[in-house]
Design a protein around this nucleic acid. Structure first.
Length: 268
DNA sequence: ATGGCCGGTGGAACCGGA
C-alpha cells in the first residue's frame, strides 16, 4: 500500500499538476493539505474517474485537508479532537482496508508565525504560536490513543516543523522561527518519543533532503529548502514499511506547489 | 551577477503562507 502526503497549495490552481503526479506515482492513498476549498466546491470527478474515493474536510479560502483512496474508506472523522472552538480544517482520518486495515490520519499543522512570547517565555494567549503549540498538545493526545490501539496507523501531513538543523539548507535562519524554534522541535519530539517512527529518516540520512522550497528568491534553483512534511508510523505500521521517498523533482515542473509529495510503501 | 512569489478573494489591494 503506497501512502503519500502532499500539500498542494490550492486544489483549483494545482489540479493539472496533481493529476499528472497521481497518474505517474499511482499512490493507493493520497493525503492532501491546503485544498483551500469548501467541500462542495472540491472537484471530485477527475479523481473518481481515476478510481479514487474522495473525502474532504475543507473551509473557505484557507487550510483544508482531503483523503484520496483507491481502497474503501471507513469510519471517516473530521477535525482534531480537544477544542470545540477550533474552526480551522486541519485534520481528517479514516480506516483504509487492504490486506490489512490501516488507520490513516492527514494533518495540516499550524504554521505558528509570528512568534509572540511573554517575558517569561510562554506564548502569548490568543497568538498564532500559542495556537500551534496547543494544536500539538491535542495531536499528542490523539497520538497516544492511536498507539494504544496497537494497530497499524499513520499520521502524515504538513507538520510545519523542521525536526533538526540537517533538515534545512540554512538552519540558522529558522532558529527563531515557529518552524524551527526549540519549543516547536520539542513538541514534535515529544510525539515521536511516544513510540512513533518518522519514516523518512529510517532510510535516508544526511543533508539536502527537503520537502518545501519557497516560491521566492530562487529557492528551488539554489536547493534552499526545508523538510517539514512527515509521515509518523505506529510500531505496527513501521514494521510493515518497505520504502519511503520524497518526489522532489515535482518542484521543478510547471505551476508547482511549494511543497512536494512524500510517500511510504507498507506491506499491507 | 542580481533580484526574485503565489493563491484566494473579489474585483483592488490584502491576507496568509513558510
Amino acid at each position: 500500500m503506497k501512502i503519500a502526503t502532499f500539500n498542494i497549495n490550492g486544489i483549483k490552481a494545482r489540479l493539472p499538476a496533481l493529476l499528472d503526479w497521481l497518474d505517474e506515482a499511482q499512490p493507493d492513498v493520497a493525503l492532501l493539505q491546503e485544498i483551500k476549498s469548501l467541500d462542495e466546491n472540491f472537484p471530485r470527478e477527475p479523481f473518481e474517474d481515476r478510481g479514487y474515493n474522495v473525502e474532504t474536510h475543507g473551509q473557505k479560502s484557507f487550510n483544508g485537508v482531503a483523503i484520496l483512496s483507491k481502497l474503501p474508506l471507513e469510519d471517516v472523522q473530521r477535525g482534531l479532537p480537544g477544542d470545540d472552538s477550533d474552526e480551522q480544517a486541519r485534520w481528517i482520518e479514516a480506516t483504509v482496508v487492504g490486506d490489512r486495515a490501516v488507520r490513516i490520519c492527514g494533518l495540516y499543522l499550524p504554521n505558528g508565525n509570528p512568534v509572540e512570547l511573554n517575558t517569561d517565555g510562554t506564548p502569548v494567549k490568543g497568538g498564532k504560536y500559542e495556537y500551534k503549540l496547543g494544536w500539538m498538545d491535542r495531536l499528542h493526545t490523539r497520538a497516544k490513543e492511536l498507539l494504544a490501539s496497537e494497530e497499524p496507523a499513520i499520521m502524515a501531513g504538513d507538520y510545519n516543523i523542521i525536526p533538526q538543523d540537517e533538515d534545512a539548507k540554512r538552519p540558522e535562519v529558522w532558529h527563531e522561527d515557529a518552524l524551527g524554534r526549540p519549543e516547536s522541535r520539542a513538541a514534535f519530539r515529544r510525539i515521536l518519543n511516544l513510540g512513533f517512527t518518522e519514516a523518512f529518516r529510517t532510510r535516508t540520512l544526511g543533508p539536502d533532503h527537503y520537502s518545501f522550497w519557497d516560491y521566492q528568491a530562487g529557492a528551488w534553483n539554489k536547493n534552499d529548502g526545508i523538510r517539514i512534511d512527515h509521515l509518523l508510523l505506529t510500531p505496527q505500521a513501521a514494521d510493515l514499511m518497505t520504502n519511503c521517498q520524497i518526489d522532489a523533482e515535482i518542484r521543478g515542473r510547471e505551476k508547482p506547489s511549494d511543497h512536494v509529495p512524500v510517500w511510504v510503501e507498507l506491506d499491507a
